[in-house]
Structure formats: C-alpha cells, structure tokens
C-alpha cells in the first residue's frame, strides 16, 4: 500500500509481530523492564493498567518532548491574542472607549491569557496524540489472547520481531527468566 493510513500501524513485513509476556505485578514488571533494557532491546514496550511510577526510567525512555510543543503553541496563542486585539482596537475598528487609549494593554491581558492557555492546552492534548500516534484503532497486540487484561490488572512486556536482538526462543527465555508467568507469540495481522 502506498498511502500511509493514519489509524493503522506502519509495521515491517513479517510473520510474527513478536512476543507478549505477562508479569505478576508492578514490582515484577519494573524488574523485568530493567532486564530487557539492559539486554539491549530497543523495539519493545510495556503495558500496564495504570502508569507505574518510574517504569519509563526502568525502560530507559528519554524524557517527553511535549513541554516544548506546549510552550510553542501556548506562546503563539498568547501572541496571536494580543495581536488580534491590537489590530481590532487600533486599526480595524478604532473607537475611544471610556477615555482610554486605543491600545490599552492592561485591558487586553485577560483575552491574551485565555488564548495562551487555550492554545497551550490544545497543544498538550493533540501534541500527546501525535507523539503517541493516536488514534490507532488497529494493532496486532489486540489479537493476543490475554491482552485485554492490560486495561484491567495485567502487566505486560511486548518485544517486536524486528528488533535487531529478537530471537523467538532466546527472547522468550529472557522474558521467562525475568519473571514472566506467561509468554505468547503474537501474529502480525
């Protein structure tokens, strides 16, 4: 397929998507993530029903770039708000009101602030969607048998088959050694 579909993952060709391992609880998955990280895997993820504190560090993830996105959109919103009011009040529809100067900056602070917050919040939410590639309504993991528990009480690690270090038996052994109570091969599609 030539065109990238926004709601479908762009995955390399391959028979298996990878391995999905289930762990008992939060401490177990934290320890296991450190092991997988230290083993040098890069194309992998963990899935937990709630954000487990410090798991991003245990996985060796870099800090989110989201704050920069928000700073940019927020400042643009505020600047745009001030410019809009300046243009409207000084150029487009210049009226003297309550004896105040045409450019009465204190009176423009509320709208400037509101638009800064509005665009900052839009940047935060849609920036987060973009960074997470959401919405993505289909994903091979959804076909795994036990994966529904990831939004209930299941703690999972998934390792993708196109990770350079991936080897179905060796990787499965690593996951078992790291404390997996169940390891499953997930098909691509």
């Amino acid at each position: 397929m030539g065109l990238p579909l926004p709601m479908v993952p762009q995955l390399p060709e391959g028979k298996a998507f990878g391995l999905l391992a289930r762990f008992k609880d939060a401490p177990a998955i934290h320890a296991a993530c450190e092991k997988v990280r230290d083993a040098g895997y890069t194309k992998w993820d963990s899935h937990t029903p709630f954000p487990v504190h410090g798991l991003d560090r245990a996985m060796g993830l870099k800090a989110s770039r989201l704050p920069w996105i928000v700073l940019t959109t927020g400042l643009s919103g505020a600047a745009g708000g001030m410019l809009l009011q300046y243009w409207v009040s000084v150029h487009a529809y210049a009226l003297v009101i309550s004896g105040k100067p045409l450019f009465s900056w204190p009176a423009f602070v509320p709208v400037t602030f509101e638009l800064g917050v509005l665009f900052g919040a839009l940047g935060a939410v849609f920036g987060m969607f973009a960074l997470n590639r959401l919405p993505m309504l289909f994903h091979p993991l959804f076909s795994a048998n036990s994966f529904a528990a990831a939004t209930d009480d299941g703690f999972f690690i998934s390792i993708e088959s196109w990770d350079p270090k991936y080897d179905e038996t060796a990787t499965a052994a690593l996951l078992r050694e790291a404390g997996a109570i169940e390891v499953e091969v997930v098909n691509n599609e």
Binding site: M7, C33, D45, S46, H47, T48, P49, P51, V52, L55, D56, M59, L61, S64, F129, N132, L134, P135, M136, L137, F138, H139, L141, F142, F147, A150, T151
Partner: peptide, 11 residues
Amino acid sequence: LGWRASTRHWQ
C-alpha cells in the same frame, strides 16, 4: 482511540 496502555504512551 486504540489505547493499548503502553508505557511509551503513558509517558
């Protein structure tokens, strides 16, 4: 939106 509770997403 296809949320799969991933730590990369949670972050």
